[in-house]
Design a protein around this nucleic acid. Structure first.
Length: 300
DNA sequence: CTTACGGCCTGGGTGC
DNA sequence: TGCACCCAGGCCGTAA
């Protein structure tokens, strides 16, 4: 499942292969994950790839104008859950579920493969990038401690939901959210507004450390993730919480638990990441004393 | 406005 | 052997 470290790894590989290359032709198979396939077929051939960069979980290819006077374009690729963007020799056989083939002027092909097609691809003038990237939040590796803490402390939602919300932080997914919360010893159901300055500092460093270590390991390969050369990552070997239900916590040996938070499986250590106290309501004390009142129970 | 939740998209893996 | 079911991330609609 490509998140920030996986996308960063792909982008670094593409940076070594693509800038300066001209796109000669476009071939498409299934197109339901492309905003407007006809635009790709019409406008992509003839463009030169000037730069490759990452914005959150988006891969952005900055393209030069196809002809004099034409607009500069940007090609956005989101890998979704199972997307792969890999450079092949043109004669390499197409792998199953490969739906986009971009022929390059060096005899190679940039191909997009996506089993589930939960990814997204779109091409538009560079000046209109904001329609895709505009609502995205802070880059967790570029944000300052102050920006990071302010963004989370201002919200009452579960911290798990906030870390996953691309409008708050761009690039975090389920794996690195759980790994970061485990490192910072914060339960996924804590509320952003209830985190202490100390916890926010710990979380800031946990997020940056986890992401940087994962990038160094070239990402986590759980099911389908590979980089731009088709190679798997290794960070899945270093997971401490994610997908470890029932296995012992690396710190305290307590079995890792799995609960659903923000609609997502959330793995955590019930000892290191203690369950938040129930939120107090104005009447809670009185209600608890008046035994004839059944207190409003919150879902567990 | 914010937050929570359920449904939808797809198809590989799992378990019966 | 076949087949129903679960689940993943992002997005959207709805309700409180």
């Amino acid at each position: 499942m490509p998140e920030l470290p996986e996308v960063e790894t792909v982008v670094r590989g593409l940076k070594a292969a693509l800038p300066g290359r001209r796109i000669l032709g476009v071939r498409l198979a299934k197109t339901d994950f492309i905003d407007d396939p006809a635009v790709l077929e019409r406008d992509l051939p003839g463009t030169v790839i000037q730069q490759v960069r990452r914005h959150g979980k988006f891969i952005v290819l900055e393209l030069g104008p196809a002809r004099d006077g034409a607009e500069k374009l940007s090609l956005f690729v989101h890998l979704g859950m199972t997307g792969q963007l890999v450079v092949y020799p043109a004669e390499a056989p197409a792998r199953p579920h490969t739906h986009v083939f971009l022929a390059l002027d060096d005899g190679r092909e940039l191909r997009y493969t996506d089993i589930r097609r939960f990814g997204r691809m779109c091409l538009m003038p560079r000046a209109e990038q904001a329609s895709v990237l505009g609502d995205l939040g802070l880059d967790p590796l570029e944000a300052t401690q102050q920006e990071f803490s302010a963004a989370l402390h201002a919200r009452k939602a579960h911290i798990k939901a906030l870390l996953l919300d691309q409008r708050v932080l761009r690039g975090m997914g389920n794996i690195y959210t759980d790994e970061s919360l485990w490192r910072a010893r914060i339960h996924p159901r804590r509320l952003g507004a209830n985190l202490t300055p100390k916890e926010l500092r710990a979380l800031y460093h946990a997020v940056q450390d986890v992401l940087n270590e994962a990038i160094r390991s070239r990402g986590s390969s759980i099911s389908d993730y590979v980089d731009s050369a088709g190679e798997q990552g290794e960070f899945q070997l270093k997971h401490r919480a994610y997908d470890r239900e029932g296995k012992k916590c690396f710190r305290c040996r307590t079995p890792i638990r799995r609960i659903i938070v923000a609609g997502r499986s959330s793995y955590f250590c019930p000892h290191c990441q203690p369950t938040p106290r129930r939120r107090k309501t104005r009447n809670s004390k009185r209600e608890n004393r008046n035994s004839k009142h059944v207190s409003i129970s919150r879902k567990r």
